[in-house]
């Protein structure tokens, strides 16, 4: 499984010279499975560049949406394959008692917010609510589960052979809970991340910023690392960077994160802050001692 980060920013695109290294595009991760099948995790503005990178002859791909906040769907109407008649796109996302996934996404892909309507997209697009049970896409087994954020929000786990990726970009598992003290089955998202080869997880706030953002649906750096430690992920990428965090600020947070991880018993190289354009080949082979225990 090959993983590429196309958008690592949270909340709102934040382009500019101060964010050029970690990137200003919002959430999108491209996955190439072992048989060459393609998945996109979320459709923030990062999916635009993913679309540009894909060959025009591509016939099918799946987009797995964690939720429908704008920073996770904004790129849909700028995704080149959506404008090719030969492309079949399957969009997965959370169910809601209020309206279907298609109808909720159509609130964005419709006038006056969008120049095109869903029905006008040239591609063959379908919308599916994620099942409660595991399902398959190509060689991969996919699991989705609700996680603590604002509104119906999913995390995903993708298993392909020996490789496993957990993707939980918007997540506040410490809301009203002590991650270090809770039993595992009471930790939001735990089963998705357990022993994953790679965990991509919300790390939006510095620890000193979190108290002013309790309940906003995101993690502090320490909470994200506590979650990673409990879950036993081999490697952790902190993601969904706050739009106010410059490259220099993120560099400092990266140093803090690695220091904290070492204090938890792990190896510094097992934790990093996600950068737009970074790629990961799974399974990663981090020495067992690099995992915190």
């Amino acid at each position: 499984m090959r993983v590429k980060l196309w958008g690592t920013r949270g909340s709102v695109p934040s382009p500019g010279p101060e964010t050029i290294r970690y990137g200003g595009n919002t959430s999108c991760v491209g996955i190439t499975l072992s048989d060459g099948s393609l998945l996109a995790l979320d459709a923030g503005t990062g999916i635009r560049n993913l679309g540009i990178s894909l060959p025009p002859e591509l016939t099918r791909l799946h987009i797995l949406l964690t939720h429908l906040h704008l920073d996770h769907i904004q790129g849909l109407v700028f995704f080149a394959p959506a404008f090719r008649a030969q492309t079949e796109i399957v969009i997965w996302g959370p169910a809601s008692p209020e309206a279907s996934l298609r109808d909720r996404i159509a609130r964005y892909i419709s006038a006056p917010l969008s120049p095109v309507e869903v029905r006008e997209l040239p591609c063959d697009v379908s919308f599916r609510h994620t099942p409660e049970t595991e399902w398959e896409i190509g060689p991969a087994r996919i699991r989705a589960a609700s996680v603590a954020h604002r509104g119906p929000t999913l995390g995903y786990r993708i298993d392909d052979g020996e490789s496993s990726l957990a993707y939980i970009p918007d997540h506040e598992p410490a809301l009203g809970a002590d991650i270090d003290a809770l039993e595992e089955d009471w930790i939001s998202g735990f089963a998705l991340a357990r022993d994953a080869s790679l965990l991509i997880h919300d790390g939006q706030y510095a620890d000193d910023e979190y108290p002013d953002h309790i309940g906003w649906g995101h993690s502090s750096l320490s909470h994200a690392l506590s979650f990673a430690r409990r879950s036993g992920a081999e490697r952790t990428v902190l993601f969904h960077h706050d739009p106010l965090h410059s490259d220099e600020r993120l560099d400092r947070l990266g140093v803090e994160a690695r220091k904290h991880w070492v204090e938890l018993g792990g190896k510094a190289e097992a934790v990093e802050l996600g950068s737009e354009g970074s790629t990961y080949e799974l399974p990663v082979r981090v020495p067992a001692t690099a995992k915190a225990t």
Binding site: A145, S146, V147, A148, L175, G176, A177, D185, W186, I187, S188, F190, A191
Partner: peptide, 8 residues
Amino acid sequence: QRPLELIL
């Protein structure tokens, strides 16, 4: 895993 609704 407990469902999120029970966790919350």
